[in-house]
Amino acid sequence: MTLDLLQVGQKAQLKSFIDSPLTLNFLEMGLTPGKNIEVIQKAPFNGPIALLMDNQTIAIRVHEAKFLQVSL
């Protein structure tokens, strides 16, 4: 499944990227395969998703979250 499908409070492990021009951006932010992430907030009306990873909060749009493959 992809990250955008996670509910608030759900934890998952990042598996791989779906090919996109943003792969390098994900890597540089520290979103590397194997990382544990938790969805902590979602902005209303399909707005950005807030993730917790390595004690760091990251905001990402639903559109970008669709490129991140995760497993529960």
Binding site: L22, N25, M29, P48, Q56, A59, E64
Partner: peptide, 9 residues
């Protein structure tokens, strides 16, 4: 260009 949001809080 593609628009994206990927930011640290």
């Amino acid at each position: 260009e593609q628009s994206y949001l990927l930011t640290d809080l």
